[in-house]
Amino acid sequence: MIPKFEGLIAAPFTPMNEKGEVVYERIPAYYNFLKQNKVVGAFINGSTGEGVSLTQKERMKSAEQWVAAARENPGMKIINLVGGTSYAACIENAQHSARTGMDAIALLAPYYFKPSGAGQLAEFVARVAETVPQMPVYFYHIPVLTGCYVSMYDFLKEAAPAIPNLAGIKYTHEDFMDFQSCINFRNGKYDMLWGRDENLLSALVLGTRSGVGSTYNYAAPLYYKLIEAFDNGDLVLARKLQQKAIDMIRLLGKYGGIATGKAYMRYVGIDCGEFRSPVKNMSHDDYRKFTEDVKTLAMEEEFSKYISS
């Protein structure tokens, strides 16, 4: 059995400068910031990290920096999303991850030529996983972006006998029936990481003990309070805290979407720059309005704290 995660895994943003270049030197401070806020892992080069907008070299160099930061200050595990469209490129990234000392890798479904069913999807993942047999491999299920709506329960039935190093799934979808079936597949063998921050409480009810999310970058204390309330049986408080998270997440949509996450990071003291094109970034005037809206959330105690080291 591959050890399962317990706690919050952040999906870090990739720090950029004003020219849209990756600023690798900011990664160690970013790592320490997450660790200070009790985050147990980092899922790098994912959607939040703009992995699909980075070059192979950029993804590899970023991975090296995150692993180096973990060696310098142990305590967080690093999962690297190695890609999804070309299995040859995924293999290149996966083997680099193994040489670098990454804790695990993750794979997306091919999102241009899409697999027609669970068998094809499992075959694609297996082609990459078999090249790094000692490394835990996660599948990243996010059909709203990949367009691959294969049932993950069906995927596990195909993948279980074919991929011995399959660790689990990062599940970013709203099919709770499918998710629960995956949790209970083969007596709970696989690590099911919930990927929708706005309904983490619902996933806790079904049995998950870990989630991967962008808002855990800057609001980890809020979610740990939620988890504590749930564990203590205080569902009234847990629902109240989940609503706080939803109110916070609504501002993402109000100010343009995923790039607003970097504005939240700036608000808590970590400058990650802006997103690469074609993602829309907010204007200076919108950032001023955004900060005023954030203050109305009355969440200062629930935001992650930046402690300069």
Rank of each mutant, 00 (worst) to 15 (best):
I163N: 05
A159K: 06
P136D: 06
A106R: 06
G84V: 05
A167M: 09
V150S: 03
P115G: 01
F124R: 10
A104I: 09
G117L: 00
E92Y: 05
E130G: 00
G168F: 02
F113I: 11
T131R: 14
P110M: 07
T100Y: 03
A104E: 08
Y138R: 05
P164A: 00
F113Y: 15
Y153S: 15
I163F: 02
M135W: 04
A109L: 13
P164F: 01
C148N: 15
Q120M: 13
I105K: 04
L121S: 02
V125Y: 14
M102D: 11
L145C: 13
A104G: 12
Y149T: 08
P115D: 05
P136I: 09
L108N: 13
A122H: 07
C90I: 10
P143F: 07
V128F: 01
E158G: 02
E123R: 12
S86F: 03
A159F: 00
V150Q: 12
A126V: 08
F155P: 12
H141M: 02
Y153D: 15
D154W: 00
G84I: 05
P133A: 04
Y112E: 00
V150L: 05
Y87N: 13
A126W: 10
L156H: 04
L107N: 14
A89M: 10
I142T: 10
Y111D: 03
S116G: 14
G147A: 13
